[in-house]
Amino acid sequence: MIEFRGVTKKYPNGTVALKNINLKVMKGEFAFIIGSSGSGKSTLIKLILKEEDATEGEIHVNGYSVSTMGRKQVPYLRRSLGVVFQDFRLLPNKTVYENVAFGMQITEALPREIRRQVPMVLGLVGLSKKANVYPSQLSGGEQQRVALARALINKPALLVADEPTGNLDPETSWEIMKLLTEINHRGTTVLVATHEKTIVDAMKKRVIALDRGVMVRDEQKGIYEDESKDGQVHY
């Protein structure tokens, strides 16, 4: 589903955000990417979306060879994924319904198909009643649920999320996490970048830890802290 082989990312200003990352996430997995601020979590997500290009190494996502694909292919890669951002990134001039429908409009979906699919997904995230409301009229948690609905509308095999709960209070964060778990149970592979210790610890999912661009840990059913080696806390 996702494979990084010897991936290094050096930004034009010289910052090396990721160093020789080797990583495999299988179909149906739920994995966290953790690490302190600046450790390279967002960079890793950006490489998956081809928002940034790897400086070295090979990346495969959803059957696309991300590192070698042409510009024209990029939209197809992105449409094959669901994406959720920390700041929601909803379109402010569109209603909840339109925001979610938009995800389908950019594919060649028929209007009939859209009218059928959107209410279903809005129901899944519990926002059926807010369909005609604008994002600015929603709470943060609700906005993130809209974003989730949008990410799910094309039934992606893989969902990536960069700090999806970063702007939410703990309770709302849990709601979002529950939704992500549910989505995962329905068969979608989920990759979440986060630095929320409590959530990671409680979920007992796979944990991939980054430290200053280096992958320092990859554990099935891991926890946030890793005191086994040197007793140091990495967040």
């Binding site: 979306l49 939209p75 950019i106």
Partner: peptide
């Protein structure tokens, strides 16, 4: 900002 979001969601250039 919106255009960037559209791009990240995989909207084709023409769209």
């Amino acid at each position: 900002e919106q255009i960037n979001t559209l791009r990240l969601l995989g909207a084709p250039g023409i769209f």
